[in-house]
């Protein structure tokens, strides 16, 4: 007899794995501190001084509590709350991302509609697409000058490709029958684009957007480590420089949580535009 549904059982298993994982982690920490008796020499050279070790989960949780209970404090350039740092990162990601969408979706539409444009632009897309977004950074810094804008540019350039390619692919793959329905109803090109092609290609386009936002969030951390100043990427690097590994572990977790939320939002959108043929 099944008392619990599949989802409930899965959730239970997740919790068990989490608790077991945390316990093992917690138990493993004292081992690294058990340095045993120190020699005179070691004591003199400071080897036995409070060594920066991987923090136990209890310390991370305490840190998280402390940070999350006051996420927006601002005590100077090197001491800002986690909320502010994440806010900066999200702002950069969304700015770059929406600029990319603004270019990629109309442009993808165009090359999806025209075989000629598709074939003509394809080599450029294929060459530009595999370039690591961070490789653009020096060029962006040189041309744009501003580090903030450069970070946004890097997000723009990395999120444009999946959206562009998926839009073109989705638009090119719209069923001939549906286009014929538009034609026999004398819809103009704009009406056809918005009432037939866009909804028909929407699931593919949104899939591209979802991939893009995922990549953009991956890239922003690295980009902020380079440009510095603010943002969650900078925060991680700064805490590493401070040798505050508790904060590092905590911010890694936060990066994961934010990334998951962004993805979940697009997952929702994806479900909204999905249709069954």
């Amino acid at each position: 007899m099944k008392l619990l549904s599949l989802n409930q059982r899965a959730a239970l298993l997740s919790v068990v794995m989490l608790v077991v994982g945390l316990l093992i982690w917690e138990a493993a920490i004292p081992a690294q501190n058990a340095v045993g008796e120190l020699t005179e020499y070691e004591r003199l050279t400071g080897a036995g001084a409070a060594k920066a070790g991987v923090p136990p989960p209890s310390a991370v949780i305490t840190k998280a509590w402390e940070q999350l209970s006051n996420p927006f404090y601002d005590a100077g350039p090197n001491d800002k709350g986690i909320g502010i740092q994440i806010g900066y990162s999200i702002y950069r990601v969304l700015t770059g991302y929406f600029l990319a969408a603004l270019v990629a979706i109309p442009f993808g539409f165009l090359i999806g509609m025209s075989q000629l444009a598709y074939k003509a632009f394809n080599p450029f897309i294929q060459v530009l697409r595999p370039i690591s977004p961070l490789a653009w950074m020096p060029l962006a810094l040189f041309i744009i000058g501003d580090s903030e804008a450069s970070a946004i540019f890097v997000i723009f350039i990395c999120s444009i490709w999946p959206m562009l390619i998926n839009t073109a692919f989705g638009v090119a793959g719209v069923r001939e029958d549906w286009v014929n329905v538009a034609r026999t109803h004398e819809l103009g090109p704009f009406k056809t684009a918005f009432t037939v092609i866009l909804p028909a290609a929407a699931p593919t386009i949104v899939t591209g957007m979802r991939i893009s936002i995922g990549i953009a969030w991956l890239v922003i951390v690295a980009a902020e480590m380079l440009v510095g100043g603010t943002g969650i990427g900078y925060y991680v690097w700064n805490e590493w420089n401070n040798l505050d590994l508790t904060s590092v572990v905590f911010s890694i977790l936060m990066i994961g949580v934010v990334g998951m939320s962004l993805d979940a939002m697009f997952g929702l959108l994806q479900r909204r535009v999905a249709y069954v043929e």
């Binding site: 034609r183 026999t184 004398e186 028909a200 535009v273």
Partner: peptide, 20 residues
């Protein structure tokens, strides 16, 4: 010349728009 609302078509595969 070209498709028109004056000529309605019922296609074999229905050609309904599945998202509507």
């Amino acid at each position: 010349k070209g498709p028109s609302l004056e000529r309605g078509v019922v296609f074999q595969n229905y050609s309904l728009l599945p998202w509507l």
